[in-house]
Amino acid sequence: MTTETFAPRGLGKVAIHVVAVLCAFVTAFPLYAMVILSFKQQGSIEFPASLVPWDFSTEAFQAIFTSPEIWRWMINTAIYAVVSVVLILLLSAMAGYAFAKKRFRGREVMFWSLVSMLMVPYHITLIPLFILIARSGGIDTYWGLILPGLANVQAIFLMRQFIKGIPDELLEAARVDGCNDWTIFWRIVLPLCKPILATLGIFVFLWHWNDFLWPLLVGQSPEMRTLTTGIASLQAEQVPLPQVFAGAVLAFVPIFVAYLVGQRYVTENAVAAGIKG
């Protein structure tokens, strides 16, 4: 009811709508342009004439689909994102459970050493990390791509916070029923964590799908590029603009779908999860 007091009325209402539409248009324009221009013919891009949503041509998509590389890039990106999501969720839920509900020697030290690394910029770790992976033969491999990102401090932290909120009594009851720690974790804790797992899952997926610098370093050969590094290479090779945009659209669609499906989880928990860990 009180919201109604401030609900915009009359002229103000119109003004708010106009401004909001304008801002939304400016925000969405680059993405709109990307999609529309990917359906244009090579060399026919002009502003603003090319931005009309007709005169469709699938020339650019046909061109990039004929190269086997784009398929490899999509598969690589999917493997990188999906495997990372599954492993990160599992590993951080396990750690979050132990940090929240178990007591063991060194727990505080371990937890604080994890949290303190949130302060350390990723880039300072980049060179030793690369040297480690390169020396171990991890260049152009999936494990070299995935393994270094699995210790996700942000995810561990969020899982711990969430699992702390699960009442101890619930876990005690399960123990009385004869469950051991693993079955408690697997049958009680994990199912209760569904909302946070969904949120984290979407964010981890977004981070990895969109990741650039690490895939750029690990994927040295063209077959081991991901969509982001692949698109950057298309741009660098001066591939015609509609084709670059077509590649960009392919990279964007899964993100867009994930965002639509999980929008509730994304926007409600953005405060905690919007910061890349």
Partner: peptide, 9 residues
């Protein structure tokens, strides 16, 4: 939407 869009795009 731009926040979830890849920086490369």
């Amino acid at each position: 939407l731009p926040v979830v869009t890849s920086l490369i795009l």
